[in-house]
């Protein structure tokens, strides 16, 4: 009975929405509410898919999104590894507190944190004013609405998604093989490279994908911090939906994004089940 209820929940709130979005991706825009007609109610052809592939506009956005996601995920994992190991070098009593200190900044919500980055990085922001006051630069550095601010914001938003699972995996690992490697004469970094890294590769892969997949559709961070002309998949979907009110095109773009992410999602689920 509980299983039926749980299955019903998944059917209604996870499976059904994905099926509906797939359906609407083949609908035709229409003046009215909702602003589309389902394919069997109209003779007008669906143009969403040809629009998506016609010029490089959406494909470019998709590629840029994947690149941004790749960069974000790689940086998050690269930073999380030493951070997690650093926490684990503290005495056991202190570890939960250190994790807490790492996670606490996230409690204020990411919108406010992104606002802080704006306040720090814009032309009249704290960083530029400090650098100019120190005489290091004369004109403000254009950091906001550019890739530096975008990367800072992405990293600041997604770091815990890599840090927490990696920390959990590394905390649960068996230390004996590392001690054996050190005993056999391996230097600390060699121990990490030859024992720790291979033993936690699956967890690192899962953490990478846990950042990569949602980051590929990120909307808010690029909107607030990124270059205005750098169109990303998440922003394209948002704009088609809210500004152009072209729901079928937004749905088709979502389906396309999901299609690209299907392989990483399946890989992630496989790694999580290990």
């Amino acid at each position: 009975m509980i299983r039926t209820g749980a299955a019903g929940w998944l059917a209604l709130l996870v499976a059904a929405p994905l099926l509906v979005v797939l359906l609407v991706a083949f609908a035709v825009p229409h003046d009215g509410l909702p602003p589309f007609l389902l394919p069997w109610l109209t003779d007008a052809p669906n143009e969403s898919w040809s629009l998506l592939t016609a010029d490089g506009f959406f494909l470019g956005a998709l590629m840029r999104s994947l690149w941004l996601a790749l960069l974000t995920a790689a940086l998050c994992v690269a930073l999380s590894y030493p951070m997690a190991l650093g926490i684990l070098r503290a005495v056991p009593r202190a570890r939960p507190w250190l994790v807490g200190v790492c996670v606490l900044p996230f409690a204020i919500g990411f919108v406010l944190r992104m606002g802080a980055w704006i306040g720090l990085l814009r032309d009249s922001g704290l960083v530029n004013r400090a650098l100019m006051a120190a005489g290091i630069i004369i004109d403000p550095l254009p950091m906001l609405h550019a890739w530096p601010a975008l990367m800072a914001g992405m990293l600041h938003s997604y770091l815990p998604f890599a840090l927490l699972p990696l920390y959990a995996a590394l905390a649960a690992r068996d230390r004996a093989p590392e001690e054996a490697a050190a005993d056999l004469g391996a230097a600390p970094f060699t121990v990490f490279r030859t024992v720790t890294l291979p033993a936690s590769a699956a967890a690192a892969g899962a953490a990478f994908l846990l950042v990569f997949i949602p980051a590929a559709g990120e909307f808010v961070v690029p909107e607030l911090l990124g270059p205005p002309d750098a169109l990303l998949a998440g922003r394209a979907i948002w704009q088609e939906f809210f500004q152009s009110r072209d729901w079928p095109l937004a749905a088709a773009a979502s389906v396309a994004l999901l299609g690209v992410l299907l392989a990483p999602i399946m890989l992630w689920q496989r790694l999580e089940r290990r």
Binding site: P17, L210, I213, P214, G217, S254, L257, L258, I265
Partner: peptide
């Protein structure tokens, strides 16, 4: 893992 825009749009639809 689903990107938020996809979840949001699909739930709205």
């Amino acid at each position: 893992v689903l990107p938020e825009v996809v979840t949001g749009l699909s739930l709205l639809l």
